[in-house]
Computed example of a mutant assay.
Amino acid sequence: MNRGSRLPLSHLADMTDDAGLFEHALLTAPRREHGYCLDDVARGLAVLCRFPETSFLSDRLLTIYLGFTLAALAPDGRCHNRMATDREWRDEPGLGDWWGRALWGLGAAATHAPSNEARKRALDGFRVAAQQRSPHARAMAFAALGAGEILIADPREEAARALLHDALDTLGPADPSPGWPWPEPRLRYANGAVVEAFLVSGVALPAPRAVLTGLRLLTFLMDAESHDARLSVTPTTGRGPGEAGPGYDQQPIEVAALADACARAYGITGDPQWREGVRAAWAWFRGDNDAGVPMFDSHTGGGYDGLEPGGRNLNQGAESTLAVLATAQQAQRLGVLG
């Protein structure tokens, strides 16, 4: 991936059929027997909406992902997550992370999809899902990312405004312990999304204290997820007070969420340290990580599923591929793709 080049979507396309995005891969081949999940499809919708220029392929993928996300909505705003290849849902509608990511994807599409029709369909879907509230902080953080996009674009959108207020109430205490400022007892997964939720809520509402909270948490997170002048992100087991890295497996989604948070902070403050954070995130994918191995295929855009002590998980699933593309988008936009 070179600066100024179009990011390759060939692996993402290989992981997609006319129904949706397959969740898992065996090396580069989609594992169709595991079906599709809204978690990944909605994440893909958000990523596709961030391309400054569209193509026939990106438009086709966006149309598929938007259709899947809307089909996952129940009338009361809850969402299905898992669909099998027979096109039947395998779960009951719920309010887990997938619900929050649906709102994230729909919010992105409502403001950035290439056609008026797609933007209208996405906004209608957002309003359906925004009837609900999740008891889970991560789900509400993901939902806030979509609501923030909509409210920034249209301050009259009350469904988005109400959701952001409730997300801030759910995300954590206003005055956390100075020894552990994170609003949870442990760092978990996609931690950057929590930070970005504070930042985007603070800009959209507006709520200046939320912006300050987000910047304080991002400073803490960058310090906690760095080791020997490179990113060493929270492993799958999490990380609590006093626990030092490196730890494994490190997941690409953690790096992508950190890149998004740093890009958002740079857009708000213009502080070059946050641009450097995006550069460090992209460097992690290029091999400046604890195992010293690249975490993506530069020819196809496929992402490897996890960083391990001796190298990498060679499977290229949907989540990791989207994490690569999302981080590359931010690096390209800020001129640090290199």
Rank of each mutant, 00 (worst) to 15 (best):
A153V: 07
P155K: 04
R156Y: 09
E157Y: 05
E157I: 10
A159C: 10
A159Q: 11
A160W: 03
A160E: 06
A160H: 03
A162L: 12
A162G: 10
L164I: 01
L164P: 00
D166P: 09
A167R: 15
A167F: 11
A167E: 07
L168V: 06
L168K: 08
D169W: 05
D169P: 00
T170N: 15
T170H: 06
G172E: 12
G172K: 06
A174I: 08
D175C: 14
P176I: 06
G179E: 08
W180Q: 00
W180D: 01
W182L: 05
P183E: 02
E184N: 10
E184I: 01
P185S: 10
P185V: 00
P185M: 08
R186I: 01
L187A: 03
R188Q: 07
R188C: 04
Y189G: 04
G192T: 08
A193L: 14
V194N: 06
V195Y: 02
V195P: 13
E196Q: 15
L199A: 00
S201V: 04
S201M: 06
G202C: 03
G202N: 05
G202F: 00
A204D: 05
A204S: 10
L205Q: 00
A207Q: 12
A207V: 03
P208K: 04
P208D: 00
L212A: 15
T213D: 10
L215A: 03
R216G: 15
T219F: 02
F220V: 00
L221S: 01
D223R: 12
D223N: 06
D223L: 01
A224G: 02
A224C: 04
S226H: 07
S226Q: 09
D228N: 15
D228Y: 11
A229W: 09
R230D: 00
S232K: 14
S232P: 02
V233S: 06
T234M: 04
P235V: 12
P235N: 12
P235T: 08
P235W: 13
P235L: 10
T236Q: 08
T237I: 13
G238E: 05
R239Y: 05
P241S: 03
E243T: 11
E243L: 09
E243W: 07
E243N: 10
G245K: 06
G245F: 08
G247H: 11
Y248V: 11
D249S: 11
Q250I: 03
Q250Y: 02
P252T: 04
P252K: 01
V255G: 06
A257Q: 05
A257R: 15
L258H: 04
L258S: 09
L258G: 11
A259W: 12
D260Q: 13
A261C: 09
A261E: 07
C262A: 13
A265N: 13
G267W: 01
I268Y: 07
G270S: 01
D271Q: 14
P272M: 09
Q273N: 07
Q273L: 05
W274G: 03
W274Q: 01
G277P: 11
R279V: 07
R279S: 12
A280K: 12
